[in-house]
Design a binder for these strands. Sequence first.
DNA 1: ACAATCATACCGACCGGTCGGTATGATAGA
DNA 2: TCTATCATACCGACCGGTCGGTATGATTGT
Lengths: 198, 198
Amino acid sequence: MKQQDRATQTKESILKAAEHLFAVQGYEATSVSMICADAGVSKGAFYHHYKTKQSIFLELMQRWLKGLDEQLVLIDESTEDVKQGLLSMGEIIGQVLDVGGPQLPIFLEFWSRAIRDPDVWEATVEPFQRYRDFFAALVQRGIDEGSLRDLAPHNTARVLIALAVGMLVQGLLDTGGEDWQDITHEALELLLHGIAAR
Amino acid sequence: MKQQDRATQTKESILKAAEHLFAVQGYEATSVSMICADAGVSKGAFYHHYKTKQSIFLELMQRWLKGLDEQLVLIDESTEDVKQGLLSMGEIIGQVLDVGGPQLPIFLEFWSRAIRDPDVWEATVEPFQRYRDFFAALVQRGIDEGSLRDLAPHNTARVLIALAVGMLVQGLLDTGGEDWQDITHEALELLLHGIAAR
DNA sequence: ACAATCATACCGACCGGTCGGTATGATAGA
DNA sequence: TCTATCATACCGACCGGTCGGTATGATTGT
């Protein structure tokens, strides 16, 4: 095999091992040695490909967010009706919770680290502000096309994200096998139509 | 001074030091030695009063939740109108974010630890399910008195908690000095009346 | 005297990261 | 094409330091 191919393979196996271990044990509880053992690679190989333990942490997050980005943009482009688009995006949350559950706990660690570490902040929070702007634009579109009430797009976006994040956290901590696809859908319906009596 | 008084004073100063350090540096980054140094106490004193590092972590959380409990019950008893009660509870979130900001990051760590550690889970998640039941009962009351639409109380409670948690996380990660009191209030209004056009 | 309270000294495990060295494929001049 | 040279990929022992926790003795109120 070519040298470069072997290299990328090694790098990838390290990343996969790290992703798995971070998900199951958490970041702090996972040592570089464990990652190497799991990947079947030496510590030297690890530090040849990655500068620090944290750097692999960040690369993981960037990949993850990139995937989320693409999904959102995809839905955004394929929907005409804003209300329907919001519901579709809600389904992403449900999917994320039902499918990618195991590796989600990392997010909580990312966030708590982001508060102190500027590098982590840049890689996690800054993208979230991009999402907020994205939702705000979507809400504005809804207002323009008359399907949404005339409310502050920025704040509404914050509410939407709060809903997403809150559902994510609850999904992580709830043990019972809830159907989050369903719950998130209903939550968005509630937000759309209000819970107060007419 | 009496021996027992001195003991409780020591215990309290340890707790205060731990609370402060956990808030500023995080749990893992804070060592027992640092807590002792900050409290002006020896390691022997620490392990005389607390079994492990984690035990102090848990005691902190229990105190915190107890305070939250009391606030919620207080509002619950003092309000007649459910809609108004919900808005008042929203203000708690705002208060919590504006006032107790510095020590909130611990929550994220608590949650991420709760996923793996059964003891932490019991101390953090189980209370949250109590809150959910509490909100569910409140929603049910709203339905009965006709101020809320007839919807599943359990799911609605989940939405309310999602909103609270989501706002909390955003409040932690947003750098700008937003007025979360205001934002949370508007969020609840949005949820109450819906964002869709009539 | 006796127990509660605290201080000091210390242990073994482990951690992230480094470093000297090797193995192996790429490259280029003869 | 054969070979000398070099860069990349990788190995694993090792380091300084930190950590949570313990063992033991001093102090102090009762």
